[in-house]
């Protein structure tokens, strides 16, 4: 699904990622953990194609294609989804309209019929209900005046509607209370399937109690310094990043 080789990315001329290697296969859930400033969000933005994130070396293949040949919207239409750490406010555009435009842009690309207003509404209601989201929220301007938790839930709703092949979730768990965390985790688990992959970027082990990862990677200083299974997340929780960082320096 996703094959990252020796990827280096610079922002404002400063190297943030320095030689990241990571392979994610269909059906897998990978968690990426790491201290503040380790480059986790940079990896997410570089994969989604944000301007200003300059690839200085390495390659990424996505579903067998060179990812960097694709514009951000083409990546999205090809099934990539980025759940934002800080979802962006768009005044004047109702969440419902936004979601309908996005859903239909992706359906068109897939050669599927666009959803009409009725079918769309039915589908959104169904998905919103699972996330215990108030439908009223969707009639308001996108993310404007939403609480932190509402914004994150809205991200997961968008993901549920767009049914991505590869979902990259950048700290979707931050700012959620326990109940909301469980609901969001359920939303992520519903997306799991043999032909989809999920990349969870998180600070904490917390989310991983609900979404069990197949692999856990620790990103520090712009490279992956340690990979393992779910036990690695527990190790981080227990000991912090300190010991791993000194091991990495020693190595």
């Amino acid at each position: 699904m996703l094959e990252i080789k020796n990827l280096s990315v610079a922002v404002d001329g400063k190297e943030i990622l320095v030689g990241v290697d990571l392979t994610v296969n269909a059906g897998e859930v990978h968690a990426i953990m790491g201290p503040n400033g380790s480059g986790k969000s940079t990896l997410a933005y570089a994969l989604a194609g944000r301007a200003g994130y300059k690839v200085t070396s390495g390659s990424v293949r996505y579903q067998g294609r060179d990812l960097f040949e694709l514009s951000p919207e083409e990546r999205a239409r090809e099934g990539m989804f980025l759940g934002f750490q800080y979802p962006v406010e768009i005044p004047g555009v109702a969440g419902m309209n936004f979601l309908k435009s996005a859903t239909n842009a992706i359906r068109r690309h897939r050669g599927e019929d666009e959803l009409d207003a009725m079918d769309f509404l039915k589908l959104v209601r169904e998905k919103a209900k699972l996330l215990k989201m108030d439908e009223k929220l969707l009639h308001r301007a996108l993310n404007v005046g939403f609480s932190g938790g509402e914004k994150k839930r809205n991200e997961v709703l968008q993901m549920a509607m767009l049914e991505p092949r590869l979902a990259i979730l950048d700290e979707t768990d931050s700012g959620l209370d326990v109940d909301a965390l469980r609901i969001v985790a359920d939303g992520i688990n519903r997306l799991r399937g043999p032909d989809r992959a999920i990349l969870l970027i998180t600070h904490y082990q917390r989310l991983l109690n609900y979404v069990a990862p197949d692999y856990v990677h620790v990103l520090a200083g712009g490279r992956i310094i340690k990979s393992g299974d779910a036990a690695l997340a527990l190790e981080v929780e227990d000991q912090g990043y300190g010991p791993m960082l000194s091991d990495a320096v020693a190595a």
Binding site: A48, G49, R50, A51, S71, P72, E73, R75, A76, R77, F81, L82, F84, P87, V88, I90, G92, V93, N97, F98, S101, A102, A105, I106, H109, Q158, L162
Partner: peptide
Amino acid sequence: FYCQSRGLSAEDAVTMI
């Protein structure tokens, strides 16, 4: 970028906004 990451082109995003 937020709109593009949801599959909308920049022009469509501007028109929508």
